[in-house]
Structure formats: C-alpha cells, structure tokens
Design a protein around this nucleic acid. Structure first.
Lengths: 210, 210
DNA sequence: CCGCTCATGTGAAAAGGGCTTACATCACAG
DNA sequence: CTGTGATGTAAGCCCTTTTCACATGAGCGG
C-alpha cells in the first residue's frame, strides 16, 4: 500500500519511485537536516522495501546529488523569473532577482540545503555541475546587463560583480534568511538587508542612481 | 599545556576527557563533515569507551555546541587581531579584518563548520550565544569606527554595515574560500574577491578613498 | 491473444556502527 | 580506613546499509 497521493496505481510496482524517493529525501532534509536524509527512511516513506532504492540510485550520495541538481534547476528558474530579462531597468531587476534569491532560499529551504550544505561535490556529477552552472549563468547574465548599463568609462568586470552578488545573497540567506532555528535575529528583514547592500554596492560601482 | 599528551600511562580516569573529546570532534568534522562528528568515534579517539562522553556532555549536540563556542572565541580573537583597533586607518584595518576572516575560515575550517554549518541552534546554549555575540561585537565595533570616520552628512547605520560585512565575508568564505571539495573554482582568490567587494561597498557608502 | 523477457520491487539476513542502561572502579575527604 | 560521588566500562538494543535470491507484471514480438 504505497501512499496514494494522486490516485496512481499501487500494485507491485510503484510507478514513479525515483521521484518519490527524491521527494521523501527533501522532506527528510527539511525535518532532520542533510544527514537525516537516510536511504532506508526515504524508502519507508515511499512505501517500498529498503532495497528498492538501489534500483534507481547507486547509493545515498547519488540520491542527494539528484535532489541538489533538481534544486538548482528550480533555482535557475526562480532567478530567471525574478530577473525577467532586466525589465524595466537592470538595476531594478537586479534587486528583484535578489529578492527572488532569498525567497527561494526560504520557501525551498530543503533544496537550498541540498544544494549548498549537504557536502556533496559538485564536480562529481555531470548533471549536477551543469545545473549549478546554469543557475550561476543567470546571475552572470544579470551582472552583464547591469554593468553594460553603467555610464562610467571604466566598467567593472561582470564576472566579479556576479560573484560578489552571489556571495552577498548567499551570506544573507545563510545567516539571516532561514526559517531554521539557526537563524540569527536581526532588526531588519533579510530582504531589506540585501536590498540595502545591493544599493550600496551598485553605487560603489558607479551605477546610475534609482 | 595541562594535558599529558604522551601519557599513555593513564589509569582508569582520563584526566582531561572533555577537551580531548572536543579536539577529536574537531578532527572528525575536518575529516568527515559535521555529521561525521559522532559521539562514539570521538570517544574512541580519546581512548575511552563509547559511554564515557555522557559524563561530560548530555548528548552529541552539547558537544558540538561546546566546540562551536570555543570556535567563536578563537574567531573573535582572530578578528580582533586583524582589526587591531582600527590602525592605522579604519578603512585599511577593515580590509585587514576581512582577510583575517577568510584566513580563519580556511585555517580553522573545522571550527568554522562547527560554528555555521553544524545545524546547532545558537539560542539553545548560553555560552555559545555569548561567544557568538562577542565575535559579532568585533565586526560591529569595526563598523562603528569605519562609519564614524566617514565625512558625509548622512552616515549609514553601523549595525547594517556590520551585517553586510558579515554576510559578504561569510558568503565568500562559504562559496569560494574552503579547501573543501565543495569549493567553487573562480578566477580570483577569495581574498582578492572580498577585498574588491569591500572597496566597492565602502565607496558606495561614501567612505574616503584609500 | 500468447508467452517471453527484463526492469522493478520483495524478503531476509549479515555486517557495521551508534546510543544507552546497569555495573565497576577510582579519587578523595572525614 | 571507609563511604561517597565522579568517572569509565561492558553489553545489549536498534537502526542503516548492502547484498542475495526470488517474485511480479508491463511491454513487446509473434
């Protein structure tokens, strides 16, 4: 009797065990942290025997890598939507993308943990590395547009701007932006904190004032 | 050193088990990540039975909290040393403190993991919270001095500057500054990346140019 | 329709390791 | 010398991982 979530067939074969395991792993990460995502428990939640997962993932690490890769895909989409091709102006869209970043880290906390705090090596999995680079590509594209929109004679390298943006957003999300118990309390919302940081940073670059 | 390092001739009692456990936990974090710091293995490395640690720590979490608290103490010292009371100038000292931050995250990687990625709740332990706040106090003190040194009529709130600094440094350290396998490769050193970010940020604040 | 085939899931069990309860030992004060 | 609390031990319990032979049924060619 597998969990009848959508009225699927629940005979001998699960039908979509791979995705069910990934979903269970996400829930486990949310409940118990990255190390709590155990192979056996994921199988239990999917309603299959402890040996079944081995038909879909070589080991626990491969499961986590798949979860992280899926997370990066969703992450890239979220950033892309926030950026919205830089409309109406790059600087404005940039801040909106920052909010999308924080929003993702909060509403998809388990994905974010899998992506950045599960201790998996990004280089180990081709699909994971590709997904990760696709997400960073959005940041980089946004940075390019922001830099290109700047007036000054000397424009900062877009790659550096993208890296700074990533570090800033990741730092704010990690330290202050989690619903987690590890969240530090500060007298500002993470969104406001990040927005203010972007404003200061962009001004320091010589960007046009909003 | 109070610990008898070469004293294999320990009798029934260890003599300094508490510190030995904390040291072992640090090594385990360095070798296997935060979840690898298991209670039993720490005991094994200290040369005692798996139940002995319970005489010194209520559970695994309390051990990790103690390790993290000790890490924050060392961290605060490192930042304080880097800041060096803002000499010769606040802006210069500020960057030096940033390098001290990255240096600590690298040379004391296990401490840093215990402090920020072990999933412990800072609020749960009074000593831990105190140590954490002491470390942040250094950041805040430095931010105060930097802001006070600024000329403009409108000075940014020092707390915000401190939080931005922390987020930036933590972001750079987490994403690019680890010797870990999870480190992302970028065409700049973490130190240069952070220094550049500081320069841009301080310029955005209206700080005097170096 | 039939029957083969293989991907997928089962059940059991070994191996390994961490956690914890009852008991043993030591240090020290009176 | 002896009682007592602090400290460490031994052993059992439970969970996870992993592998093996075996069961199921969906899909395919005929």
């Amino acid at each position: 009797m597998s969990g009848s979530k959508g009225g699927e067939s629940r005979g001998y074969h699960h039908g979509n065990l791979r995705e069910a395991l990934m979903k269970a792993a996400l829930e486990l990460i949310a409940e118990r942290g990255p190390s709590g995502a155990t192979f056996a428990e994921a199988a239990r939640r999917a309603g299959v025997s402890p040996a079944a997962p081995y038909r879909h993932f070589r080991d626990r690490e491969e499961l986590l890598a798949a979860v992280a890769a899926a997370g990066f895909e969703r992450f890239a989409e979220a950033l892309l939507k926030g950026w919205d091709r830089g409309r109406p102006r790059p600087a404005e869209a940039f801040e909106r993308m920052g909010r999308a970043y924080l929003d993702f880290a909060r509403t998809h906390a388990a994905d974010y943990v899998a992506m950045f705090e599960s201790g998996i090596a990004v280089e180990g999995n081709a699909a994971l590395q590709q997904a990760s680079q696709r997400a960073f590509g959005v940041l980089r594209e946004a940075a390019e547009a922001v830099v290109a929109d700047m007036p000054g004679p000397v424009r900062p390298p877009a790659l550096m701007v993208a890296l700074h943006t990533w570090a800033l957003a990741h730092g704010v999300a990690s330290l202050f932006g989690r619903a987690d118990a590890a969240r530090r309390k500060v007298p500002m919302s993470p969104e406001d904190l990040l927005e203010a940081a972007f404003l200061v940073y962009l001004r320091g670059l010589g960007a046009p004032q909003a």
